[in-house]
Design a protein around this nucleic acid. Structure first.
Lengths: 186, 186
DNA sequence: GTCTATATCAAGATAGAC
DNA sequence: GTCTATCTTGATATAGAC
């Protein structure tokens, strides 16, 4: 099922993410999503027969895009111990636009609806840690950087990050230099 | 209003946190909370007239206890540049029991219900950053450590942390040594 | 594949007795 | 301060027409 063979699906997931961003996970209802996706409830339910299906669709796309984005960023970076973790940091935080924030919306909505839906995320996170430490970076250092990355993303999703743009970029730079400092210290 | 002059309130908030932990923010209903707090819906609604009041009550107690816990930990630590951030890390992550996890439950529930309720958290987070950098620790370093701390807590709340106990403590140690390394490097 | 209409149910909130 | 009973709304999900 290619990305263009099923535009309604994609449009619906876009709409669902927007609803969570704009009105909170509580308002992720079929009505609200159908309205924003310009489709009727029946049309929506053809693609996602129940709420769990919709949330799974959102999460699947989230994971898929995160992987793509990281792979793309990795390809731009020089080889080295810190390449993988820097790719994670930058692909997660480089842009702070609505689209980036929308991605993570699925997390909050799923966590609020049924924590069990997040099991695949846990698995993927373990894979990330393995990738990141695979080429020599010490586990603890990589974990701290990854956690700070995702902590910032989650705080921004909850709209509780107190950092302005300038502070935010200096924090991202600090993360990257922590990945490199470690290398230099060796 | 002291902590012991109003036991029902406390008991209800305990119950609400438990519901979110055990069944997800979606199931934080008056019925579920009343059942667990062993009180009727009417009794519950006497203390918290609507859902927003309940969530605010949960968030207030979360903030209050986080501050207390940090102050207590701070008092145990020797003076120094890194005291405040280490107090934050340890008071947030030292114990990984149910009670600790319950605290953060209010965050998820409120974020899912109405993101606007989280405004006080943002304010408090800014205060934390000011405290933490007040005695000389470089802002970026403190922010990364604080973000990693809260990232781990949020991942654990969502049950997506892939780390086992041993990994978790070595990560906490890394955070603390990052606070000290910085000092040594000066 | 998309639509309308409707059955069903759960949850928030109110009123008033004890 | 705590209770039961009830009103009202809004959301999921189904059935079936186009």
């Amino acid at each position: 099922m290619g990305r263009h063979s099923d535009n309604a699906r994609e449009r619906i997931i876009d709409a669902a993410e927007q609803v969570v961003i704009e009105r909170g996970a509580r308002h992720l209802t079929f009505d609200a999503v159908a309205l924003k996706a310009v489709v009727s409830r029946g049309g929506l339910l053809y693609h996602f027969p129940d709420k769990e299906a919709l949330l799974k669709g959102m999460l699947d796309r989230l994971l898929e895009r995160a992987k793509e984005s990281r792979a793309k960023k990795r390809a731009e970076l020089a080889e080295g111990t810190e390449r993988e973790i820097v790719a994670h940091v930058l692909s997660s935080l480089e842009k702070d636009d609505k689209a980036e924030r929308a991605r993570a919306a699925a997390l909050l909505a799923s966590g609020a609806h049924d924590p069990g839906l997040l099991a695949p995320i846990k698995k993927e996170y373990r894979t990330l840690m393995d990738d990141v430490t695979g080429n020599g970076l010490r586990f603890e250092r990589a974990a701290v950087i990854a956690l700070a990355t995702d902590g910032l993303r989650l705080l921004e999703l909850l709209s509780v990050s107190p950092f302005n743009k300038k502070e935010r970029s200096s924090i991202v730079e600090e993360m990257i230099s922590l990945a490199k400092e470690h290398k230099r210290a060796k």
